[in-house]
Simulated assay, not measured.
Amino acid sequence: MHDMTLLQLIEDDFAPAQQLLELLQTESIALHGRDMPLLEDILARKQSLVILLDQQGRRRSELLASLGLSQDREGVVQLASHSQAGERLLQQLDALGKLLADCQALNAGNGQLIQIQQGATANQLRILMGGESPSLYDSRGSTSPLAKPRALSQA
């Protein structure tokens, strides 16, 4: 009975996990295009999916804990060893794990893209606001003092 409940909880996570993966792919495209309205919409939908997946994960953990099993893959393996649906349970768990790992990898890539864009934006703002001028090299190969204005021919 508990094995089928756990299996159902795992299978219930496939749809939101797949939606999350698709959202992360769309987010990557929106980040490249700097489409802010789309990114705001994606963020709201992404947060609701993450909350749903987190709640489902807690329900699975609570079920395993109520059976006196560890709340990780090992606990599922122990439950599966006493179940007729054990093989299917493990297959579905592994498939869900791969799907969530794909989401995590794509999210990490999107995070790196955001950091790169933030750095570029900060640099552009610094230039626009008249902040530090970039270090220039003179004809001798040494860096020029930042405070001293130079002729363009000496850059």
Rank of each mutant, 00 (worst) to 15 (best):
D3T: 03
A17R: 03
A151K: 10
I114L: 13
S28A: 12
R59S: 06
A155I: 10
L69Q: 07
G131C: 01
L24Y: 02
A30Y: 06
I29F: 10
G130Y: 04
A101D: 10
G141K: 05
P134W: 01
L99R: 05
Q19E: 14
H82I: 14
L125W: 12
G141F: 02
L23D: 02
S133I: 07
G130C: 08
D13Y: 02
S81R: 08
E62G: 11
L89H: 04
I51R: 13
D72T: 05
L64T: 03
A120I: 10
D13I: 02
A151R: 12
E27T: 08
R60I: 02
G130E: 07
D94Y: 11
G131Q: 01
S133T: 14
S142M: 14
L39W: 00
R126S: 10
G130F: 07
S61V: 03
L90R: 09
N110Y: 01
D54C: 05
N107M: 05
G130M: 08
L53S: 00
R59N: 03
M1R: 11
L152H: 10
L96E: 00
G57I: 02
R140A: 14
F14M: 06
Q112A: 11
L20R: 00
M129S: 14
H32E: 13
G68A: 09
I127M: 11
N107L: 06
G86V: 08
H32P: 00
Q84G: 14
D41P: 01
L49Y: 04
Q124R: 12
Q115E: 11
L90M: 14
R126G: 01
L39V: 04
G141T: 06
Q104M: 12
N110T: 02
R126W: 00
E27W: 05
L89T: 03
G119M: 02
P37I: 06
L79P: 03
K46E: 13
L7V: 05
N123S: 14
L24Q: 09
E11G: 03
L79Q: 04
E40I: 05
D12V: 00
Q8E: 15
L152P: 00
R58G: 10
L152N: 06
H82N: 15
R58A: 12
S81L: 06
A155Y: 11
Q47W: 09
T121Y: 02
Q118L: 15
L52V: 07
Q91H: 11
L90S: 09
Q84F: 10
L152D: 06
E22W: 04
E22L: 14
L152A: 10
Q84H: 15
T5H: 12
P37Y: 10
K148Y: 10
G111F: 09
T26K: 14
R60A: 01
Q124G: 02
D3V: 02
G141L: 03
A65H: 06
E11R: 15
L52W: 03
L96F: 01
I51F: 07
T143P: 13
L69C: 04
I114H: 06
Q115G: 04
T26V: 12
I116L: 14
G97Y: 05
D35P: 01
G111V: 07
S83F: 10
S48A: 06
Q117R: 07
I51N: 11
E27V: 05
A80N: 07
G75K: 03
Q56K: 09
L136S: 08
N110S: 01
L90E: 05
Q47F: 09
M36I: 13
S66Q: 13
E62K: 14
M4W: 06
A85N: 12
A17V: 13
S28C: 07
R88E: 09
P16I: 09
I42F: 04
G97P: 04
G86T: 11
R59G: 00
